[in-house]
Write a protein that binds this DNA or RNA. Structure first.
Ligand SMILES: [Zn+2]
Ligand SMILES: [Zn+2]
Ligand SMILES: [Zn+2]
Ligand SMILES: [Zn+2]
Lengths: 140, 140
DNA sequence: CCGCTGTTGAGAACGATTGTCAATCGCATG
DNA sequence: CATGCGATTGACAATCGTTCTCAACAGCGG
């Protein structure tokens, strides 16, 4: 299967304010890097929280859905990060996870144009750059 | 975890020619779209082959490793496609999977420059555009 | 305070992928 | 062509990340 049906983006639904969701939001905000749901869950437990793993997964999903976090897929697992609300991409250190937000109007334009040129509508794009940051590079 | 350690790309290893690997190569080549290992396995069985699922996974992994196929992650599963050997990106219909190979020197240049500008080395990038192709768009 | 619902946590369930291991096969060698 | 070593295979178990199930619980409007 290529992708879930795109006709599903109807009801952002009511969203109740709970301790857990706030705790996840906070924990996520306290990390400058991309983190997995499992990693976030563990760090929260170690910090005394009693959140359930499923709840962390659910909270991260809704945060991403609401545009409060960015998600990317790396090494078979989903990683999340609290990001600025505007559209942007990432430069990520594959060693330590350090992340730099990137804005590139030229790339946005290119993506839209190339899609249109081939008759594709509702274009979305995935643009991420991975590398080894300066400090991780010297640490070798 | 952010990414597997990058120091592992030593031995492409010997690669023996077997009926199974060839069959997978052929099956993959016969599909213009990106397909999952499972889907490819099923179509091969239906076509009379007796390959094992694990073998299909292994064959696809080596083909991708050898640059004979491109892999991308979509909807939680890995998709593969026989692609031209030179570096390129993709424009993919999220409905039918139709794929267009894209070359964009400007994007390559941008990726390299932005990585260097932030002191990142060994840059790699993921650039894919998803949309709904013309024929899938009218079929609504 | 009440009630209606959305939410939560524990654990089971799931689906994709990988590991295990004996049987088999490619292929270099004589 | 016969042999032998080691890569490869296939059936199945095992992992792993993620989602589902469901009863207990907790926002929040009235
Ligand atoms: Zn780093
Ligand atoms: Zn963009
Ligand atoms: Zn299409
Ligand atoms: Zn490129």
């Amino acid at each position: 299967m290529i992708h879930a049906d795109a006709t599903d983006a109807p009801d952002p639904g009511p969203r109740r304010t709970t301790k857990q969701r706030e705790a996840v939001r906070a924990a996520l905000a306290s990390s400058e890097e991309f983190v997995s749901a499992q990693a976030l869950h563990q760090s929260m437990r170690q910090a005394g929280s009693t959140v359930g793993l499923a709840t962390v997964y659910r909270a991260l999903a809704t945060l991403a859905e609401d545009g409060e976090a960015d998600a990317l897929q790396s090494g078979g697992e989903a990683l999340y990060r609290a990001c600025s609300p505007s559209h942007h991409h990432h430069l990520i250190c594959r060693r330590c996870g350090r992340t730099v937000e990137l804005e590139a109007a030229a790339v946005e334009r290119w993506a839209g144009q190339v899609a249109a040129a081939h008759g594709f509508v509702e274009p979305e794009h995935v643009v991420d750059i991975f590398g080894v940051c300066a400090s991780c590079a010297v640490a070798r």
